[in-house]
Amino acid sequence: MAKDEEFIHALKTGDSKYIEHIYREYLPAISQFVNKNNGNNEDARDIFQEALVILHQKLKQPGFELTSSVFTYIFAICKNLWLKRLEKSRKLRVTFLDQQELSIVDELDSHIEKESQYRLYRKKFRELTAGCQKILELFFGGHSMKEITKIMDFGSVQYTKKRKFKCKEKLISLIQEDDQFKELT
C-alpha cells in the first residue's frame, strides 16, 4: 500500500522517477493482455500512456479517491480502452471486464471518453507548425486578436485573424481525419 501511495503521489505530481517504476511494474501485464487480444507492444504502450493521463487528470480533481489499487485502476482503464478499440475496428472481442473492473470503468466512463478525445486533440496540435501552435496557444489562452498581433509582431489584426483561422482549420482537419476521432465520435 505504501508503494501505491508513492505511485499516486507520482501520478499527481508527474514525478518521472516513480512513473518509470509504474511502467516497469505494470506495463508488462498490459502488454500481455493486448498481445493476447490482437494487439502489439506499441498498442499496449499507447493505451498505457492514455490510462496514466486519465488517472493523472482524475487524481487532480478534488475529492477523488481510488477505491482499489493503482494497478487495478490502470488495468481496468487499459482493458476498457483496448476493448473499445477492438470493437470499433471490428476485430474479435475476446475478453470481458470482471465486476470490479466494470465498476471502475462505470465510475470513470465519461472521463475516459473525454480524456481520450483531449489527448488526441493535443497529439494533433503537436503536429502543427511552431507558429500555428503559438497562435492557437495564445488564442485558447484567452488573448484577444489585438494582443496576439502584438505578441507575434504581425502587421495587422486582420492578418492575425486569418492566420488563426487557418491554423484552427488545419487542427480540426487533422483531428477529423484521424481514425481514432471517428472511433471516438
Binding site: 473525454k114 478525445q117 483531449y118 489527448r119 486533440y121 493535443r122 496540435f125 492557437l136 496557444e137 485558447f140 489562452g141 484567452g142 487542427l171 480540426i172
Partner: peptide, 8 residues
C-alpha cells in the same frame, strides 16, 4: 473540448 485540451 479543443479549448480545454489545448489550454491544459
Amino acid at each position: 473540448g479543443l479549448k480545454k485540451a489545448i489550454s491544459d
